[in-house]
Amino acid sequence: MTIQSHQFREKLTYDQTDSVTIILTDLQKISETIIAAKAKQDNYNQKGTYYILGFIVAITLAMLLPNMFNISAVNIIINLLIISSIYLLCTSIYVFFKANEYKKLSKNNYRIQLTQQGLQMFARDMDIMTKVEVYLNLKNLEEKENKFSTVSHPYKPNWKIDNYQLRWLKIKGEFLDKTHFDLTATQLSKTQYGWKRSRSGKSKYKSKTKPLGLDIGVTLIYPQYRYGAVKILKEEINGALKLPYFAQLKALKLTDKAIRLVVRVSPEMVDKPGELYKTITMIFLSLYQVLNLAKILSKPIST
C-alpha cells in the first residue's frame, strides 16, 4: 500500500489488512509524514513570532517618532512604518493559520509508536505470511463525531455533560497456535459545561474536560482441542493477571471458546506508548500463562 500524505492529512485514519512487514512499512511512512508536519508547524510558528515582534516594533516607532522629531521627512517614515506594520500583522496571521493546518497531524504520534511496538511483538508468534487487520485513528478525542451522549449534570442546574469515546486502535490476527487475537484501545473523556454566576452577580460560561483514561480490550479465541480445559481455570485467571500499578481490570469474561477482558489505564498514562506497551505485554503474558496450564490439563492421560 502506498501512503498518500495529503490524503492521510485529511482523514487521519489508516485501515489495512496485510502482512505485518507491509503494515510496519506503511506506519513508518506515516510517522515520517508526522515528523515532517511537526517541523513545518514549528517553522511557521517561529516565523509568525518574528512577524509579530516586527509588527510591535513598527507600530511602536510609528507612535513615538512624531514626539521625537518635527521634520516633514518623519511623516514619510511613519507612513512606511504603518504600511509595514499592516503587512507584518497580515503575514503573521497567515503564517499562524498555516501552522494550524499541520497542528492536527503533528499530534498523537504516540499511537503510531504503540501500534508499531504491538505489531513487532505479535509478529514473533505469527507466521510471516499471516495477514493482520489494523485500524489506526489519529484524530483528537474531543471532536463532534466522537460524542456518544449528552446528559444533564447531576447537581448543577442547566449544566450538561458530553461524553466522548474514540476507539483509535484495533489489531486482529492469528498466532501460530491458531489462537485468534483482537486488541483494541478506546479513549474516554467527558466535558461539563454551563453558565456560572460569580459573586459579583455576573454570569460566565464555564467548560471543563476530564479525561477518563484508556480502555485496552483483549479477546483471545482459542482452539478448544488445544486449550479446552481453560474453562475450569476461571478462578485462576484473576490471580494470574498481572498489571502495572496504573491499570486495573474493568471486565473479564470466559466462555468455552474465548477469553475477553478490558483493562482501564489511568489518564496520565494515555499518551505514553512505553507504558501502554508494557500493559499490553503483561496482559498477553498473563493470559498465555493460563492457556499454557490449560494446554497441559487438556492433554489425554496416558495409561
Rank of each mutant, 00 (worst) to 15 (best):
H153W: 05
D177F: 10
K147I: 10
T150M: 12
V151F: 10
S207E: 15
K178H: 13
I216R: 01
Y225S: 12
I216E: 00
Q224P: 06
R199K: 12
K144R: 07
K190P: 08
Q224K: 14
T184R: 14
L188T: 01
Y164N: 01
E142Q: 11
F181T: 01
R226I: 14
L183E: 00
N158G: 06
R167L: 10
H180W: 06
A229S: 15
L138G: 03
W159L: 09
H180P: 03
L176A: 07
T191G: 03
R199D: 07
N163G: 05
Y164E: 00
V218L: 07
L141Y: 05
G213R: 08
S198I: 04
K196A: 08
G194I: 06
Y193Q: 11
N140R: 08
E143G: 07
S200I: 10
T179Y: 09
L183D: 00
P211Q: 07
L169F: 08
F181R: 03
L233N: 01
E236L: 10
Q165A: 08
L141M: 05
D162W: 07
R226T: 14
L166W: 05
I237V: 15
L136S: 02
S207N: 12
E235Q: 15
Q192Y: 13
T179N: 02
N137C: 06
K234F: 09
K204G: 11
K206N: 09
G213F: 09
G194V: 06
F175N: 01
P154I: 10
N140E: 05
S200V: 05
K160H: 11
S189A: 15
L166K: 08
V218P: 00
R197N: 09
Y227V: 13
Y193H: 13
K196I: 05
K202I: 05
G173I: 01
G194Q: 05
Y227M: 12
F148V: 03
L136Y: 07
Q192T: 06
G239A: 02
N140L: 06
E133I: 08
Q224A: 10
G213Y: 04
K231E: 13
L220F: 13
L166D: 00
K234M: 07
L183V: 15
S189E: 03
P211E: 04
G239K: 11
K172W: 04
T209H: 11
I221L: 13
V134Y: 03
E174N: 12
E145G: 05
Y222E: 01
Y164C: 01
Y135N: 00
S200C: 06
A240H: 13
Y155F: 10
K234Q: 15
L220C: 09
A229D: 03
Y193D: 05
G173H: 06
L176D: 03
V230G: 08
N158R: 11
K202R: 13
T186H: 04
G228E: 02
K139M: 07
P157H: 11
N137S: 03
Y164L: 02
T219Y: 09
R197F: 02
I171M: 03
N238S: 14
G194R: 09
P223R: 06
I232T: 14
E236Q: 14
K160Y: 15
L214W: 02
N137W: 03
L176I: 08
L138D: 00
